[in-house]
Amino acid sequence: MVGRLLLHLLLLLVFAPLLLGVINKTKALFGGRVGVPFLQAYWDLARLWRKGFVFSRTTTWVFQAGPVVALTVPVLAALLIPFGALPAPLSFEGDLILFVYLFGLSRFFTAAAALDTGSSFEGMGAAREVTFSCLAEPTILFSLILLARLSGGLSLNRLLGPHLAASWGPAGASLGLILVCLLVVVLVENSRIPFDDPNTHLELTMVHEVMVLDHSGPAFGMILYGSALKLMVLGSLVVRLALPWQTGHWLTDALVFLGGQLLLAVLIGVIESVMARLRLVRIPQMLIGTSLISIFALVLVLR
């Protein structure tokens, strides 16, 4: 129990920033550049860690609560979700709801912290963030229902358990569809192209980045680290679905999982390189479309 907990935390806390490096390297390769080193995210975090803070006079304690919740929620959520074939250290009937709602909590405080600055740009970002997330929420639920239907349980350990490899046979079409849907959710929730551009330089066009404009120093580091953790935690849903095998030994399981995460990072990098950003008004349509696809996938197994 304690061993699994430590292994989980170790995998998460150590390897999450690496994924950002892989994404950036992939994008650089596509752009014909050398790109920043793989470990750049770690150096960024170390640099921010040593810096001081600057606060706007408009802000209150809520502004600091944003980074705190944004960092702690992915850590707690990670304890509920299996990393590949490594089962989650904490598991109970219905933990999938808690998993979804924990991210809701982090969204609440991130958006509130953005509004705390009184800046209209950050208000704009907060409004977009809550809008897109609440449209993505039904898709997650449809996918979880589908997985629950296939597994017969209500905990993430059961949902993403060893039966998954066998389920790909009879329910392959449904699983394939929700794999795509969950990938879209990962892209939306982690503010990736085509929904949001983490590297854009114009405040008006940002979604997530504009919300954290006024954060500084270690608090900004907490946000960066938190979003890396979130990418890994949500990505592990996709990775487990795509690579549903058990090897039987924890070390090989962990390696398969990490390999899957790296592949996912490369995939995200490729998507970011070959796609343009969607127009803002197209994003809700895309998300509603994703929900419809996931309903279709669900109907295939519910009938």
């Binding site: 408009t58 705390d116 009184g118 609440c134 449209l135 929420e137 449809f142």
Partner: peptide, 26 residues
Amino acid sequence: APALALIGGLALACFVKVFGIAFLGE
């Protein structure tokens, strides 16, 4: 369940709005 999730997401948006506009900012 998805209906409840949608309700939850919208309620969150609404209360971020109320709390943010009324209590935060200038």
